[in-house]
Structure formats: structure tokens, C-alpha cells
């Protein structure tokens, strides 16, 4: 009902950082002067279980506190969720975008999904393994999200993420550096934009 609010849904498995991705992205959007919400869906919390988290971003204050039913963008952190979880649920085939962590091309992914809307792909797991040394695909997915939607500038995102991660990993600069590289690479490598 409110077109000014941009809504995002993240799919992942417990432990992959879907919640952290929504929080980081929300925080970065706030630092650019936008109003934000970031909230996880709390079900049974188990490592590896399918989980979701959400963002709302707007240039006006956000009053909505209902669940997100028709997201503008859906991100899939774990390709093995496809077939188990209805990742395109509520996504408008005309206007919506699905971003999947996979080495497949956008066309191949579309065929696999049997979905006619816009699909973008990025090998976030490979990027994370290269840059961070671990398969933590959440930060590169934020880079892909920013490229696909243009909702934030990449420089703003990198700057804010650097500040946030430097606080969290004070004594481990290689983690900060790795994450920033991961975001930048995903931004440049996402396919189907």
C-alpha cells in the first residue's frame, strides 16, 4: 500500500548470517540518511535450518510493523534452499528481483527456478572463500544487492561497513579487509543486472 518503502527479504540457513546481513544493510542505509527497519523472523533457531530476515528502507519515517509479504527484492544466501523454501513467494514477476548465491548464470538459474521475473546471480560463496577465507556469503550479497538496486552508493556502503566491522573485529584487520573486498567483488561480479 505504501510505495515509498523498499522491502527486502533474505533467505539463508541458521549460521549463514542472514540476520547480520539485514542488520548491516539497515545500518548502512541509515548512515546515508534513510529510515530503516531490519528484523529477523524468529522461528526455531537451529544451525542449518531455513531462516529469513527482512529490511524496509524509506526516505520517510516507517510506521509499518506488519510482516513483509510482497518484497521488492529477495536474496538467497544458500542455493540448496531452492526447492525446499518458496523463495519467489510474493515477488512481483514484473517488478521484483531475485538475487541468488550461485555460480550459475542468471539465465541458468531462471530455468532452474521456472521463474519468469528478473533473476541475478553472484557466486558469493566463492568470493567469500577467496576473500574472507570462509564460506560466509552474507557480506558479498550486500554488495550484489547495492549493485542491483542502486539503493545505496557502493562507496557509502564500504565506508559504513568498514566502521562497523572495525568496531567488531578490532584486533583482526584481515577480517575487515576481507569483507570489504568481498562486497566490492560481488558488486562488480553480479550477473544479470
Amino acid at each position: 500500500m505504501d510505495n515509498r518503502i523498499f522491502e527486502i527479504r533474505w533467505h539463508g540457513r541458521g549460521g549463514q548470517g542472514a540476520k547480520t546481513a539485514a542488520l548491516l544493510f539497515g545500518d548502512a542505509a541509515l548512515s546515508t540518511g534513510k529510515y530503516i527497519q531490519a528484523f529477523p523472523e524468529y522461528g526455531p533457531e537451529r544451525m542449518g535450518a531455513p531462516v529469513q530476515s527482512f529490511n524496509r528502507i524509506s526516505s520517510e519515517p516507517i510506521r509499518l510493523h506488519s510482516g513483509i509479504e510482497n518484497p521488492d527484492v529477495v536474496l538467497v544466501l544458500d542455493v540448496t534452499l531452492i526447492g525446499q523454501v518458496d523463495v519467489t513467494k510474493g515477488l512481483d514477476e514484473g517488478k521484483g528481483v531475485l538475487i541468488v548465491n550461485t555460480p550459475l548464470t542468471a539465465e541458468e538459474m531462471k530455468k532452474k527456478l521456472g521463474y519468469d521475473g528478473k533473476v541475478c546471480t553472484v557466486d558469493a560463496s566463492a568470493i567469500a572463500t577467496d576473500t574472507i577465507g570462509k564460506n560466509i556469503p552474507n557480506t558479498p550479497m550486500i554488495g550484489a544487492l547495492v549493485k542491483v538496486t542502486g539503493i545505496l552508493g557502493i562507496d557509502e556502503l564500504l565506508e559504513d561497513t568498514k566502521i562497523k566491522l572495525e568496531k567488531k573485529f578490532r584486533n583482526r584487520p584481515e577480517i575487515v579487509e576481507g569483507n570489504l573486498k568481498a562486497i566490492e567483488r560481488a558488486y562488480n561480479e553480479v550477473k544479470g543486472v
Binding site: I36, A38, F39
Partner: peptide, 12 residues
């Protein structure tokens, strides 16, 4: 606050 809806929602 409304549990989870506000308690766990990051807002401005």
C-alpha cells in the same frame, strides 16, 4: 514494547 516486532526490530 511488542515482543520481537519492536524488541528485535532495528529501527531509526
Amino acid at each position: 514494547t511488542d515482543g520481537f516486532i519492536l524488541s528485535h526490530c532495528l529501527e531509526t
